[in-house]
Design a protein around this nucleic acid. Sequence first.
DNA 1: GTCTATACCCGGATAGAC
DNA 2: GTCTATCCGGGTATAGAC
Lengths: 195, 195
Amino acid sequence: MSDAPSVRNRRPPGERREQILAVATEMFGNAGFRGVSLADIAARVGISQPGLIHHFRSKEDLLIATLERRDAESSGHIEEAFRDSSAIDALLSLCRYNMANPDSVRLYSVESAESLEPGHPAHEFFRSRYSRVRETVAGRVRRDQELGLLPFDIVPFEFAAGVIALMDGLQVQWLLDPSFDMSSVLSAYLERFRK
Amino acid sequence: MSDAPSVRNRRPPGERREQILAVATEMFGNAGFRGVSLADIAARVGISQPGLIHHFRSKEDLLIATLERRDAESSGHIEEAFRDSSAIDALLSLCRYNMANPDSVRLYSVESAESLEPGHPAHEFFRSRYSRVRETVAGRVRRDQELGLLPFDIVPFEFAAGVIALMDGLQVQWLLDPSFDMSSVLSAYLERFRK
DNA sequence: GTCTATACCCGGATAGAC
DNA sequence: GTCTATCCGGGTATAGAC
């Protein structure tokens, strides 16, 4: 009875928000934006559906916030890897990082496909993200070419588009079968490009 | 008035079924299984929702039939390519074939991700399909190794898992931007494996 | 910050007529 | 083979109290 709804159930604002985003990451990643209801998420958080919507204006807002949170979380690791390692080593490191974060990977695999539809709430998010990530990787490839780590017959844009595609595709096979070793396949492909 | 609902609206059984599957391919590929209603599909076909469900027991049945139809359509091209060409040439040919069939590609990209969830109607369909396709490609790689077309330091399973991942991932980038040239990126990667 | 209650719309599937 | 009518469950979002 002491757990009856009351003012005492309140949590510090930031903490509750973070908790919601973690639950949403897992649930949107499982069933997609359309496959989960706000009530489902609220139930797992332990509040009511209107209680949930108090923190995010709408379901769409919650999805975008969930996607942006993951990018913010991983950006530190990625920037460091691309600054301190060659393109190939940084990408292999990112792959291992991903294998330690299945919920985030699942969210991205599911939402990037669901958002192919022009009207989807995350459509523009992924469009611009692909452009940006391809440019980041291509830039690091150019630097490796100048440093003599990669041959000049590589077209940076093609290499970049290809690794991103490769990693995206491997993630799907890994999510379907967690014993599948993404990093060994990625390594076998990337080693073919070394000078 | 002559178009009022009547017995004259009937179509030969096979023809109507085929028409439904073509519409379903396009619509499931756009918005996913959960993003389209039977009423949406029925409206585009020009019949009512119960009229649609007369041809397929349930929405799940319709999805599976739609996925199987695409495999049946492309299997002729694929078998021929793998019989008459090297692994690399057959895969490049398949990529060009895919670029001529965007609706089918979209259906597969969207549904393979949506079906990652264990309870999804197409979950088992894609699980077993990935195993089967990987084995087909790996087998062709082994034959190319014996024929002296590919070096023996390639691990057939890794090569196979990687190309499939690469092609899957490229399709997403291509669907987001139709001017993106999948086949040139694929070619740049596969050429690195030639003996 | 969280609740209950509710307005309002949409989905899949079935019954039964033609 | 196709329709209309209907059942029933579930979805998002808002109103207003505490």
